[in-house]
Amino acid sequence: MSDDNFLNIFLNRLGQIFLLNLVFILSSIPIFTIGASLTALYQCTLKIIKNTDEHILKIYFNALKVYFKQSTLTYIMLILSAFIMTNNVNFLININGGIFAKILLYLNVFLGCIWIVLSVYIFPVIATFENTLIKLVKNSIIFALTHIISTIVILIITFFPIALTYVDSALLPLYSFCWFFFGFAVIAYLNSFIFYKIFVPYIK
């Protein structure tokens, strides 16, 4: 069969997604490497959409090495800020601080929404653009706010499967199977179609 045959393309893509999911899980096991693993995963899925001829594992491990420091620092900052905001919200809910406490509570909730959007955008942005971390964070927020519909779709694609896994505990073995074999890579792959359309006008 021709290499352009639909079945060949489909099976090749399926193999790439399975392979990416496996290496993503393995490289994320130390926990603190999750940020770098996400960046490498998104660089691979974005290049798959661009129909790159490079081998997918070569792209992944090269990205893991190149973006390790910046992605790991970003991941640690996200975890610390999430911890601080969560504690702030719990504290403000349980005290009777009047209007000032409510203002601080709403401010933390707002910052939490920004955090969620940033956590979804920042690693694909790192995988695509070279810049300082501060500018990458700023650009991630700008991308998200100037493409609201796309951002909503990305959030649904990212968080709906996660929520479904926790809510429907009866099917947890099935969900675990899906996450292990293709879940993370499929989410990144689907999101990459949207990210690519957002990013491509800014790529030289």
Rank of each mutant, 00 (worst) to 15 (best):
I95R: 08
L73Y: 04
L41P: 10
A163K: 09
L80K: 04
I142P: 02
L111D: 01
T39A: 04
G15Y: 15
D4V: 07
F160Q: 03
P161C: 04
Q43G: 01
I126P: 02
P124M: 15
T146E: 10
V186Q: 02
N87C: 03
I203P: 00
S192Y: 15
V137L: 04
A127M: 13
Y202R: 14
I134G: 01
M77R: 03
I149K: 10
M85N: 09
I149T: 12
N94D: 09
Y42T: 04
V109Q: 03
K197L: 08
P201V: 10
S169Y: 13
P173T: 13
I154A: 03
N139E: 11
I194E: 06
V167N: 05
M1S: 14
F195V: 08
L145Q: 12
F160I: 11
A163Y: 11
R13C: 04
L190E: 02
F24A: 14
I48F: 07
G97D: 05
V23Q: 07
G97V: 13
Y106A: 00
T39G: 07
N51G: 05
I99M: 15
N51R: 15
N62K: 15
N88E: 13
N5M: 15
Y75S: 02
H55Y: 12
F32T: 12
F184S: 09
P161E: 04
G183P: 13
K47Y: 06
H55I: 06
F32W: 13
P201K: 09
L92P: 10
T33Y: 12
N21S: 13
I194F: 03
F91N: 10
T158S: 07
T146W: 14
L118C: 01
H147S: 07
G112S: 04
A144H: 05
L57F: 05
A185Y: 06
M77E: 03
N108R: 08
T165H: 12
W179K: 14
L164D: 04
D3I: 08
I29C: 07
N21R: 15
K69H: 03
S169N: 08
K69L: 08
V89G: 04
V137S: 00
I95W: 11
Q70C: 00
D168N: 07
V66P: 01
G98V: 13
P173L: 09
I162M: 06
I59A: 04
F177I: 14
L105I: 08
Q43D: 15
L78M: 06
N12P: 10
V66A: 02
G15F: 12
K102Q: 11
A127N: 06
D4A: 09
Y121H: 01
V125K: 00
F6T: 12
Q43T: 15
F24W: 14
G35R: 14
F91I: 09
F181E: 09
I76G: 05
L171D: 05
I103S: 12
G183W: 10
F10E: 14
K50G: 02
A63S: 13
